[in-house]
Write a protein that binds this DNA or RNA. Sequence first.
DNA 1: TCGTTATATGTCAGTTCTGCTATGCCTCCC
DNA 2: GGGAGGCATAGCAGAACTGACATATAACGA
Lengths: 322, 322
Amino acid sequence: MISRPLDLLNGRLKLRHLVLVTTIAEQGGVLRAAEHLHLAQPAVTRGLREVEQILGVELFTRGSRGVTPTLFGEAFIDHARAVQAELRRAGERIAGLADGTAGTVTVGTLLAATNVLLPRSIAALKAERPGITVIVKEGTFDSLVPQLTGGDLDLILGRLNPIEDRPDLRQLPLYNEPVLLVARAGHPAAHARALADLLAYPWILPLEQTSLRRELEQVFHRNGLPLPPDRTECTSILTIRSLLLGTDMIAALPALFVRTDPQLLELQVPLPSVRRSVGATLPGARALTPAGKVMLSHLQQQARDLDTGETGDPSDAAPVGD
Amino acid sequence: MISRPLDLLNGRLKLRHLVLVTTIAEQGGVLRAAEHLHLAQPAVTRGLREVEQILGVELFTRGSRGVTPTLFGEAFIDHARAVQAELRRAGERIAGLADGTAGTVTVGTLLAATNVLLPRSIAALKAERPGITVIVKEGTFDSLVPQLTGGDLDLILGRLNPIEDRPDLRQLPLYNEPVLLVARAGHPAAHARALADLLAYPWILPLEQTSLRRELEQVFHRNGLPLPPDRTECTSILTIRSLLLGTDMIAALPALFVRTDPQLLELQVPLPSVRRSVGATLPGARALTPAGKVMLSHLQQQARDLDTGETGDPSDAAPVGD
DNA sequence: TCGTTATATGTCAGTTCTGCTATGCCTCCC
DNA sequence: GGGAGGCATAGCAGAACTGACATATAACGA
């Protein structure tokens, strides 16, 4: 007596059958369903009989004033509605992913962009597309690149590193932000003008894996100076700031950190040879996801705003290469 | 930039497309999917392109060692799987409803059958088809009939009432169970042999709407007796039992109540004219649901057991236990 | 009893679907 | 640089699907 559980995926059942059944149920009659679907009545009747034949049960009892669902009809209508709802969701999801209304963008960030550019861009993105999930992963360039090529990251944001040896990456400059030497307000070397005058103080340097560190080492080297003997290596920006405020330490930090913090002092020793271009590093092969594109466009917009806000100072034009 | 949310129910998308996509995803390649579906490879390729054209996005990136889902592919595959799962459930549900593996049966019950027949039948039904939900509604025949014809009940179980005036009902006798006069063990009238001897005691009678009440009145009438002057009307079996045990009241009850309760005493005054047939009342028009049919078949089986058990040895109509 | 309302059935034409075979074009791997 | 594996494309024939029209049938109500 127990029949086998009906394979509805063998091709006989069509989606139109589901639409048909739910429409008949909603309209309460074959005729009304027909006009609602812009069909002639026999087409609807036949469609209904097809479904009933496929299922092997009667879905509606035909009355003289329309049709009413049977026990099976009630059950099947539920499932038919569920399927259609699922397909509607699928459509919305695909459309959302395609136009960047939904989706996820994962941004790897170096120190440079995290202070102003990234928060502003996220805020702007969220204002326009609340459906996009943003994930931020902090790290060094070397630790983020494998995640980028592996597909875990959509883009890396930060001071642009040389990538001549990485043809699978491409870079997109966003704005220029000089690196400044920084100390607390009231630091004894506040008015120093030469790098040599700062050697005696303790320094906070970036980790050796970072390109900023390498560039700083070159700065000392070109000036014929050794690295400062008293060194702390640190990437945690909160730690750096506390150290700066609590001691006489000196650090090299992106300009936007300093200029948004009244307790920090910009020293008058420029670092002209340090690359100042901040931008996004993207995978060369893979195309950006729609959500990633939207994020990138906001990054570009916010970067433009930063640059124009900064044009009062004409001294920072071209990045220095080597 | 925001596209309209993709109508996937306009007839272009087919269920086979969904199967196609999930199979390709599972098999990791068009070719493997093709052989898994017993198709040639071009058919699969074309089907995939159809879906992609319908959705307007690429679902798989074609590689040289198969295909891998894109962002959209991942999303769409989820929904496609959900749809297929829903249809599988629909198939199981319909099949279950059709063969009585699932579903609901709602039984209206009068006093008579509730003690032994119904519990046993429910137990047997549940043992065979745990998926069937059983709902029991107690009431008088008159109150249950509208629910039966209205579709709220599948059948009414109990002492059969005359229904000559109801052509929209039909009855199915199940077994015979006499109505006995009952009192507590040790009742002063324990050995009375005539109805007249019992008139002086207080009686519990069924409500006036019930047919048993009418038949009892006829019994008194035929014996030339008035109704007992001291009367309580009650249908609650628990109340009746307590009253019987705690007082000298007399009641007319189905035999199976008395014979399964050692504290109750069967009086030696028979009621031969009271109908003894217990059965099911069914709607004449509507067909029984599958679950209803299964319930009815168990009722018939259990009724047969009761009848044979009673012809062999009337004393051990063992209760189902509780 | 006759019209009204609704569903069922038969027939038919155009279109789409669905499968196939044959073949082309990549990319990776010897 | 030539297989081998794997996806894309073209063309085609038969099956099915999908729709319409005309008409039959059933139930209800005035």
